[in-house]
Amino acid sequence: MAKEKHINNTTLNNSPDIEASSKIDAIKQLIFGENMQAYESEFEAVKNDILSKKQELESLIDEVRNELLQNIDNLSTDINIRITDLENSFNDKADRLDEKKLDRKLFGEMLMNLGEKISK
């Protein structure tokens, strides 16, 4: 019997809370019903707009990233070509210097040979 009273008291205690809550919700609906629906639709529109803008920004970021990577690749290729051209130019000039350079020992031997030929 004590258990039945406890169960009934618990059910009765919860029941007024539920009724009060539902009454408050009903009053809120009466007072703010149209406004709440308008607010919810506005919030949903703003949320959708934000998601749309986020997708646009992500798309733009991907485009810029791809463009930057392409520019970096082009720049790298251009730099490699210029470095190769500079190396070739340097090697050509070094070869010309070797050709123009006067080897004193060789020049001395040539002069001695020329001198010997003249004296004969």
Rank of each mutant, 00 (worst) to 15 (best):
N80K: 11
L111M: 14
N13Q: 11
A2D: 11
I79D: 00
S21V: 01
N35F: 01
L114D: 08
N8R: 13
D103P: 06
I72C: 00
N8T: 12
M112C: 05
I83G: 03
Y39P: 00
R104G: 13
N66G: 03
T84I: 07
K47N: 07
D103H: 07
T84Q: 15
E44V: 11
I61R: 03
E99N: 05
N113Y: 02
E63P: 02
N8F: 05
M1L: 11
I24R: 10
L106R: 06
D92K: 14
L114V: 05
L106G: 04
F43K: 12
N48K: 12
I27Y: 04
K100V: 06
N71D: 14
L97S: 05
N48M: 08
N80Y: 01
I79T: 03
I83F: 01
K23A: 15
E99D: 10
Q37C: 00
S59V: 13
F90H: 04
N9V: 09
L102K: 11
N66F: 01
V64N: 08
K47C: 02
L60C: 06
S52F: 05
D17Q: 13
K54L: 05
I83Y: 02
D49V: 00
Q70A: 14
K100S: 14
M112N: 13
H6M: 11
Q70G: 11
I31H: 00
F43A: 14
G33M: 00
K93L: 15
D103Y: 06
Y39W: 02
L97A: 09
V46W: 04
L75P: 01
A26V: 11
R96C: 13
F43C: 11
Y39L: 06
K5I: 09
L106N: 06
A2S: 10
R82S: 02
D17W: 05
S15T: 07
S15E: 05
L102S: 10
R96S: 15
L51R: 02
D95Q: 12
R96H: 13
D78M: 04
I61L: 01
E56P: 04
E56Y: 03
N14T: 15
D103I: 05
D78Q: 07
E67G: 08
D103W: 01
K93C: 05
K23D: 14
D78H: 05
N80A: 12
N35G: 07
E19R: 09
N74I: 15
N48G: 11
R82F: 00
S76M: 03
